[in-house]
Design a binder for these strands. Structure first.
Ligand SMILES: [Mn+2]
Ligand SMILES: [Mn+2]
Ligand SMILES: [Zn+2]
Ligand SMILES: [Zn+2]
Lengths: 141, 141
DNA sequence: ATTCTTATTGCAACTTTTTACAATAGTATA
DNA sequence: TATACTATTGTAAAAAGTTGCAATAAGAAT
């Protein structure tokens, strides 16, 4: 529960409240380190906070996303997964074995600048997942 | 219905069948040109083919995706939308007004090569959506 | 034209996700 | 510490999306 303080402050600064539900969900995301589906978040957070509902989990994940504490990732499974918002990164996933690796955001910096100057948009966010064949799975082709 | 021939051939070459359901759905995607949700596809295709079911629409959109005739896009709404698979492109969307524009795939070519050499993966696909503020919406900031 | 194989569909049941609204409970203020 | 304000939650119902299976029909073979 020691991870709570900074999150509480961030929320309060924006006029929102820290609640046992948000705390439990943040705790799960913070200590898991992995990508979790809403259902996985629900199951794990329920242990810490019995009575938590799935509705609240969905709402909270969206809320945390909007406030920069969580990040959704569309990994091609057709369903969103979530992770705690630490360093900004993207994903590269093997379409055969499912192996995932992170893509540093600075690899996209040049592209970002190029896009901004071409389009006139100011980029603030992106959903980026690359899919391919990992070195192992390329051998079996 | 004149758009059907090439699609039918592509499917048959892979051992699959062309059906009135697939034809109606392809027809909708082909002539819409826009991104459509499964529900929009269902409603429009139903006009051409009464009796079509939503189950079939979901299954067909996934089938067409796997076979390269349709492409899903995750536009940040939390729901997938689909479009006919023409030229390869990505998307840039304004988080305020929702305005969308296309991003040419060749802008990502350099990044693709860099990623492949860094990771050892062979890239085959990607889900890429950029989000930001369009020129108009930047003024109101 | 008829038969055969099996890919594809519709149906019904199920799971996942969203929504509306009244009850609850953070937190600021006195 | 008690009070007031309203953000947040749980409940129940609806909507969106998935799955298993028996019936159907596309297309190849005869
Ligand atoms: Mn990640
Ligand atoms: Mn598009
Ligand atoms: Zn692999
Ligand atoms: Zn805009």
């Amino acid at each position: 529960m020691s991870c709570a303080q900074p999150y509480a402050l961030q929320l309060r600064a924006r006029g929102y409240r820290m609640t046992p539900q948000r705390l439990a969900i943040l705790h799960v995301l913070h200590h898991s380190g992995k990508h979790l589906s809403p259902s996985e978040v629900y199951q794990q957070a329920c242990v810490e906070l019995p009575g938590l509902t799935e509705t609240t989990v969905y709402r909270t994940l969206e809320f945390l996303t909007e406030n920069g504490l969580a990040r959704p990732a569309y990994m091609g499974s057709g369903h969103l997964v979530y992770e705690i918002a630490g360093h900004e990164h993207h994903h590269l996933k093997c379409r055969i074995c499912g192996h995932e690796m992170e893509v540093r955001h600075d690899l996209l910096k040049t592209l970002y600048r190029q896009l901004e100057s071409e389009s006139g948009y100011r980029l603030t966010d992106s959903h980026v997942t690359f899919i391919g064949l990992c070195p192992d799975c390329q051998k079996g082709e």
